[in-house]
Structure formats: structure tokens, C-alpha cells
Simulated scan of single mutants.
Amino acid sequence: MYFYIVIHFIFEDLKLNIMNTSTMSKEDFAEYEAAVMLWKIIPPFLIVFGTTGNAITIYALLQKRLRNSPTPLFLATLALSDILALTTGLLRQWIKYTFDVDIREDFTVSGCKFHWFIVYVVTQFSSWMLICVTVERVISTFLPHKRHVFCQMKFAYISVCAVLCFLMTLNAHYLFGYGDVSRHVGNGTKEQRCVPTTEQYDHFIIYSWTWIDWCVFYLIPLLVLLTGNSLIVYKVFKSHRRCHGTVTSNTNPSTAVQKSISSLTLLLMLVSVLFIICVTPIVVYPIGDPYWREGTSEHKLAKLFLIETIANLLMYLNHSVNFLVYFLSGSKFRSEVNRIVCVHATGHASTVSGSFMSTKNYDL
């Protein structure tokens, strides 16, 4: 009898929970509240840390001492795009969930279109600057005697402009496809802000554009990074084996160059690993999202929102800490930052070891 009563109460409690859950919206679940809390707490730290660090990176890389190679230009533009990604994308999310104001949807239609456009351009641009750095490093490693021909500064400027024009053209559809739409719901109409204006364009965004963005933002850069860095590591390893056993009291020029290339290779490998860890979730999620949402419950929608939040924050983490990779793995970059800090702290230039003017020193 006692067992029967316990089972009865258990089933009644379970039935009540199911009924309560069926009447709840996704905002009522703990997963949704956790995601909102993440949007409120983490972005300020990433924005301040990333913007400050990337600004110092730009200032350091554009000094005359580091302006003799295309690599500092590419890394400086990468840092600039990281700042824009943080201040346009992440800042908007923090304002939205902290102050309940969406700068994309609550203002003009033109502002909505431009915001979609600029966020995609700057995030993709960051990935393609990594491509430019990797290609330049491969050329410098395998064709050192032709480097002055293929890696001139004018070609670097042309590459940056060409990439920017390509990405702006690719994402121009946001300037024409998004807007405010009135849709019939029941006996009335519902105004939707900053959404695809036609069903055809909406289908393109959900089922086609996600794959295009996956290729441009992730797959192509990833393949270039892995291939290029693998070639560089192979070349450096082969050169080290060739020079193995040759010991001199003083470091010769070839050893110095190999050491510099090895340091930059470490930088590129760290950036590649960081890119894979932080960017993979945000490119995978949009592809699966429309299929995961079909016929799902409000509780699962809350879980998906939490997953989406974590994926977005990982992407912005990548934009925030890229400069830290330069600092940790590039002795020349560290020396330049230390010199800048000392100049501002003491009012005069400090002595920094190492030659900055040598065109053969690629260590950043």
C-alpha cells in the first residue's frame, strides 16, 4: 500500500512538471538565463582587453622599425579588424542583453543593413589576413632570394585592398536583402524588424549563405593555414637537419634567419590552433541550427540559445587574444612593445637588444 502511494505521488509530480514545462517559453528555462548572464558578464572584459591589446599591437607594428616587411602590415590590419569585430558585434550583444536595446533592430533600416554587412566583412577579413601572412611566410621561407620581388610593400597594400573589395562585394547582399517586413499573423499583422524581406532571400540566408560563409570565413583560411604552416615547419626542420652538427662560437646569419623563421612559425601555429578552437563552433552551429529547431520544444530552444551564445563568445575571444599570441611568441614584437612602454614611461627611448633594421630578421 505504501509503495503504491509513493508511485502515485511520483507520477502525479511528473505529470505536473510536464504540464508546467509545456506552458513555459524558452526564456523561463535556466539555460536561457545562463546564456543571458554570459552575455552580460563576459563581453566587457573581452572588449576592454581586446581593444586595448589590439590598439597597442597596431601602434607597435606600424613603427618604422617594423615597417620593412609585409607581415607587420597584415598583422596590423588583422588587429584593426579584430577591434571592429569587438566594437560592432560583441558590443551590440552586450548592450542588447544588459540594457534591452538592440542597436541593429531599434534604429534605422539603413543602420540595420550596414550592421549586418560590417560584422560579416570584418570577421571574414580577419581570417583572410591570416591567409596573407601565411602566404608571405611561405614565399619568404622557400624563395628567400626572390622575396624582394614577390613580397614588396606595394603588393601587400594591393593584397589588403583586393581582399577588402572581394569581401565587401561578397557581403553586399545584406545592404539590399534586409529590412522591415509586415507579416500576416492570424487576423492581424506583425511588424518584423531587420529581417530578410523575401522568402527566397530568407531561404538563401538559412540554407545557402551559411555554407558560403563557412567556406570563406573558415574552410579556405583553415586549409591555407594548415598547408602553409606545415610547409614552413617542414622547410625549417629540413634546414636544421642540414645544419645539424655545425657548431660555431658565433651565431652565423643563416642560423639567425632560421631562428627568426622558427619564432614566426610558432606564432602562426599558435594562431592556427586558436583559430580552430575558437571559430569552429560558430561556423558549425548556423549550418545545423535550422534542422535542430524543427519541431523542437521550448526547453531545447533554450539549450540551443546557450550553445549559440558560447559559440559566439568563443569567436569573439579569438578576436580579443590574437595580439597576445604575437606578444608571447614574437621576441621582436615584445621588444618593440617594451620600447614603446619605456618611451612613454621615461620620456626617452630605451636601448633594446637586437637589430630592428635588418631586412632578414622576420621575428615578430
Rank of each mutant, 00 (worst) to 15 (best):
Y4A: 14
V6P: 01
K26H: 09
V36K: 12
W39Q: 07
K40Q: 15
K64F: 06
S69P: 01
L80G: 14
L86R: 03
Q93S: 09
I95H: 00
V101K: 08
F107A: 04
F114V: 03
I118T: 04
V119K: 02
Y120S: 09
Q124V: 13
S127L: 07
R137V: 05
I139F: 10
P144C: 07
V149A: 10
M153F: 10
V160H: 04
V160T: 08
C165T: 13
L170I: 10
A172F: 10
H173S: 03
H173C: 01
Y174D: 03
Y178D: 00
R183V: 15
G186F: 00
N187M: 09
Q200M: 11
H203Q: 06
I206W: 05
W209N: 05
D213A: 14
W214Q: 08
W214S: 14
V216L: 05
P221W: 01
V233D: 05
R241H: 12
R242I: 13
L274K: 07
P281S: 05
I282K: 03
P286T: 07
I287N: 00
G288Q: 07
W292G: 00
E298T: 14
E298H: 10
A302M: 04
F305C: 00
I307F: 10
T309M: 02
M315G: 10
Y316S: 04
V321D: 03
N322G: 07
F327K: 09
G330S: 08
N338D: 08
H348T: 13
V352G: 01
G354S: 07
S355A: 11
S358L: 07
